[in-house]
Design a protein around this nucleic acid. Structure first.
Length: 431
DNA sequence: GAGAATGAAAA
DNA sequence: TTTTCATTCTC
């Protein structure tokens, strides 16, 4: 669990993921909601994820032809403005079942229903988060909420293909692939996979809260930015590149200082140069922000004038005095991210190719594999990653393929010439 | 800077 | 068909 900032109260929450393919299995995620003790506005609350997903919810062994309709959906959240105290997560917390007539297809992006237990109003917290105006999904009827919050993320354990061999995974892999939170429960028939979130605000008297949402629902996570349980789907469906939810992730509300100046160490690096912030309330905003920055980069005199976002070009051209809120942080972020890197230092105008599916996969698991195989050279890790990749099924690769495709399309849209191979006498590319 | 993986796209 | 390069990091 990520230590919470001083002055925050902690509130636990359990996320449960149910899938059609695994009706009996419920992925539970313990989240901790932090609340500023200083009386900060309700919108300035933190949610910290404290548990994990047992396995990749987005991976279904039998969904070779899975379509978007097969993906999880968001269920409604009704919030209550009242406040509650500190809550603790009970050790034997289990998800609650309740009849669900049907999914609202017309408002699938909007949480439908929720219920609370023991008069707990923490549902309000979650509702504010899930239905936050900052949430890309909340651009319709929920957009006018006054207390937008951004959600958490949790951890999915490594996928089966990413796990180390049994021989070498004895002690090191255990913390990496925790399964002790998995719980077999009574099957619940759902038309679609859902992510069920059970809040445990932290005190016995307040009980638990449960809510369900779509697996691709993006949340804004401290130190990570936008995150979801299904990043590839999120980026495809909502245009928001996301990290994966991980253990200890903390949800940040809009305006929270950590949300503005989050450390991107765990950010999905592919997109970190875009520097999404809680203010990036929608994919439209994000894309328009990119376009603005691109125009800004062009106006800065960059001959190439391309791909400011990925190349760290903003370091040179981002105007500190810009009125663009997210752009400012983006520029600052880009400077920080690439200040020591070779890309921006050597080719500020360079347009970088988007990663392909394998590169996304490799980037995601390289660190973990490096930890699994201590002493292994990075090249050896690459070999292992390649071997794992080859052994993966198509459906297992799907999320990476989709993500890569989305990245490529976006890159081509923004920078059609990004794939242009450098010429021998070219001075535009220095790699 | 090379190299190790895979894959997309240009040449 | 070949080449480049996207990421990462040790050597």
């Amino acid at each position: 669990m990520i230590p919470c900032a001083t002055g925050y109260k902690h509130h636990n929450m359990v996320w449960e993921v149910k899938t059609n393919q695994m009706p009996n299995a419920v992925q539970k995620l313990l989240l901790v909601m932090d609340k500023r003790a200083s009386g900060m506005n309700d919108s300035l609350e933190l949610l910290q994820c404290n548990e994990n997903l047992p396995s990749s919810p987005g991976y279904n062994s039998c969904d070779e032809h899975m379509e978007l309709d097969d993906l999880p959906e968001l269920q409604a959240v009704q919030s209550d403005p009242t406040q509650s105290g500190v809550y603790q997560l009970s050790s034997d917390v289990s998800h609650q079942e309740y009849p669900r007539s049907s999914w609202n297809q017309n408002t699938s992006d909007i949480p439908e229903t929720t219920y609370r237990e023991n008069e707990v109003d923490w549902l309000t917290e979650l509702a504010n988060i899930a239905t936050s105006p900052q949430s890309p999904l909340m651009q319709c009827s929920f957009y006018n909420r006054s207390s937008p919050v951004h959600i958490i993320a949790t951890s999915k354990s490594l996928h089966s293909y990413a796990r180390p061999p049994p021989v070498s995974s004895s002690s090191k892999s255990e913390p990496t692939f925790p399964h002790h939170h998995w719980k077999e429960e009574t099957p619940v028939r759902h038309e679609r996979s859902v992510l069920k979130l059970t809040f445990d605000p932290g005190t016995v008297e307040d009980g638990l809260l449960t809510v369900e949402c779509k697996l691709d629902h993006p949340f804004y996570v401290k130190n990570k930015g936008w995150s979801s349980f299904y990043p590839s789907l999120t980026v495809v469906q909502h245009g928001i590149p996301c990290c994966e939810v991980h253990i200890g992730d903390v949800c940040l509300p809009p305006g929270h200082p950590d949300a503005i100046n989050f450390d991107d160490s765990g950010v999905f690096d592919t997109f970190k140069s875009y520097d999404f912030t809680p203010m990036d309330s929608s994919a439209v905003y994000v894309l328009s922000s990119m376009a603005r920055q691109r125009r800004a980069s062009l106006s800065c005199g960059g001959p190439g004038g391309q791909d400011f976002a990925r190349s760290g070009f903003s370091k040179n051209c981002g105007s500190p005095g810009s009125s663009q809120l997210s752009s400012n942080s983006l520029y600052a972020k880009a400077v920080k991210n690439h200040s020591s890197g070779t890309v921006s230092a050597t080719s500020p105008n360079k347009c970088k190719r988007p990663m392909n599916a394998f590169m996304l996969f490799a980037k995601k698991y390289r660190v973990e594999y490096t930890q699994m195989y201590p002493g292994k050279d990075n090249r050896a890790i690459s070999v292992i990653l390649g071997d794992r990749w080859k052994k993966m099924k198509n459906e297992e690769r799907r999320m990476y393929t989709l993500e890569a495709k989305a990245l490529a399309e976006e890159q081509k849209r923004l920078n059609p010439d990004c794939w242009k191979r450098k010429r021998t006498n070219s001075v535009c590319f220095n790699k």
